[in-house]
Structure formats: C-alpha cells, structure tokens
Computed example of a mutant assay.
Amino acid sequence: MSKLMATTIGLITSSALLYSFQSNIENNTSQIRGNESNISPTKPNNRPQLPVPSIAQTKNYINHRLIPTFKSTWNEHIETFAHKVCNFDASETAKTAVNNAKSFVEDKRWK
C-alpha cells in the first residue's frame, strides 16, 4: 500500500471518528440540557455534600501525618543507600564482572 493511500485512509477514518464523537457529544449535551430544564431552580440540590476539611485539619494532617511519613521513608532509603555504598567491594565486583564478560564471550564464540 502506498503512503498516499495509507494517509488518505487514515484521514478518512479519523474524520469519521471525529464526526461520530462530535455527534455523541452534541446528543449528550442536549440530553443534559433537557434534564436540567425539567428541574425547578427552587429545589435544593439533593445530592449529598462531602464535608470540606478545614484549614486546621489539613494543617494537622500535613504536620502530623504526611511530613513524618515522608521523612521516615526518605531516611530509610538514604540509610539503605549509605549502607550499600559503605559495604561496596569494588575488587570483588570487578572480578565478578570480568568473569561474567569472559563467560559471555566464550559462550558466543562457540555458538
């Protein structure tokens, strides 16, 4: 299939999809507007309202829960990293890497 034909088919398909989506959006919008016109504006909203946390509650959550949790997780990761750096044996790691490279080369050479 030539590039021109593939591009043309792609454009036709995307245009059809966009037209379908636009039609669906228009239909849904008109249905919503029709439902809103049936509701009298004097009726209160019957949906339950979620409680909005106060600034004090949010501040307490941040200071007593979020920050200490973040700090402890951060400290654990730093401690683990420092432990790995302190116990890192460069010579043993280099020997292992060289042995792995040798075995890899030998395996590839005979295949």
Rank of each mutant, 00 (worst) to 15 (best):
L18Q: 03
L4C: 06
Y19G: 06
F88G: 07
I39M: 06
N99C: 13
Y19T: 15
T80K: 07
R109E: 02
Q49A: 06
R65W: 07
K43W: 07
H83W: 04
Y19P: 01
A6R: 15
Y19N: 07
T58N: 01
A16P: 00
S14F: 10
Q49S: 09
K59R: 07
Q31T: 11
L18A: 11
V52K: 02
S103D: 06
Y19Q: 06
S40F: 08
K108L: 12
P53L: 02
K71T: 15
P48R: 07
E106S: 11
I39E: 01
R109Q: 02
N28G: 14
A97Y: 03
Y61V: 06
L18H: 03
N35R: 14
P53K: 00
T29S: 14
L4D: 10
A90W: 06
K102C: 03
P48G: 02
V85Y: 02
R109D: 06
A82E: 09
N87L: 12
T69M: 02
I25S: 11
I67F: 09
P41R: 04
A82W: 00
E79S: 15
H77C: 14
S40E: 10
Q22E: 08
S14C: 11
N45H: 00
S23H: 04
K3G: 09
C86A: 10
K71N: 13
